[in-house]
């Protein structure tokens, strides 16, 4: 089962002969109340799809920038129900923008898989990205997600062998998240040359769009990735803009500006 809005959005970008721009920000950041505004800035700047992160105490796959944001969010008291509420606020204001929840597995496990899927769908969410849930452990979740019309996006890595790519893409829906580098989230000077090869190997196993994330932070890199991928995923660069800003409002403006630059980048393939 898949999510129609997400599929249509990615197909529309493809029809325009461009890559989609996918923006990430964690819920609860910079504050529980301000998170929806931060995400709105992504959308106003031109993001096609947004990912709202569920902050976690142990973000093993995140570098210093998103760790800091998660810390701020958790110290600010963000709860799982607040994450769902932020998603609800964003989807209510932007019914044509697919909103995914990006989360480590334990919070979903703790909430209850079926209950999380139902509540995410009720909040208007389009699906989940689950970076530490391997396909081997995902059957129960996949059934719950399918029942609610949610997409489940799996991550593939440069270290994934071809046979394994086929196993992963057979179970995933929406799109495939290709990690550009071996490493954690964070901005990087170079996107790396492993991404293109990984996208090609992934495409050989699936019709799903393949979107690339990890390390992309500016329009030039976005254009580079857009040349071979269906979508460009950016997270840490947005978080950094908010961390660097003198006020939340200045942060949202900076996010809007960066999104607009990146949106031009993904149209320059």
């Amino acid at each position: 089962m898949t999510n129609a809005l997400l599929d249509q959005t990615l197909a529309a970008a493809k029809a325009e002969n461009r890559a989609a721009l996918i923006g990430y920000l964690p819920a609860g950041f910079p504050t529980v109340a301000g998170a929806a505004q931060a995400v709105q800035a992504l959308i106003d700047g031109g993001a096609d799809v947004v990912e709202i992160g569920l902050p976690h105490s142990d973000p093993v796959l995140d570098g210093a920038t998103i760790q800091t944001a998660d810390d701020i969010a958790l110290r600010g008291g963000v709860r799982t129900k607040d994450v769902l509420e932020t998603i609800r606020t964003v989807t209510a204001a932007n019914p044509t923008v697919p909103v995914l929840c990006m989360t480590y597995w334990n919070p979903v496990d703790r909430y209850g898989q079926a209950r999380f899927a139902a509540d995410l769908a009720a909040a208007g969410g389009a699906g989940c990205i689950l970076p530490d849930l391997p396909v081997e452990e995902a059957d129960e979740w996949l059934a719950a997600a399918a029942e609610q019309g949610l997409a489940t996006v799996f991550v593939v890595a440069p270290s994934s062998r071809d046979e394994r790519l086929a196993v992963i893409t057979a179970k995933g829906t929406g799109f495939v998240y290709a990690a550009a580098v071996m490493g954690v989230t964070g901005t990087r000077a170079q996107v790396g040359d492993m991404a293109e090869d990984l996208v090609a190997r992934t495409r050989a196993t699936t019709e799903l769009p393949v979107c690339v994330g990890l390390g992309v932070s500016n329009a030039v890199q976005a254009a580079e990735v857009a040349a071979f991928a269906d979508g460009v995923i950016v997270g840490s660069a947005f978080v950094q803009r908010i961390l660097d800003a003198s006020s939340p409002e200045a942060g949202y403006a900076a996010v809007r500006e960066l999104t607009a630059e990146l949106a031009q980048g993904v149209r320059k393939r």
């Binding site: 093993v60 970076p131 081997e136 890595a157 270290s159």
Partner: peptide, 20 residues
């Protein structure tokens, strides 16, 4: 074979580490 001791264990890791 999947590393389970009854209900516990398994392998909850990012894809980047699966091969290793």
């Amino acid at each position: 074979a999947r590393g389970y001791f009854g209900a516990y264990g398994g392998r909850f890791i990012p894809e980047a580490l699966v091969a290793a």
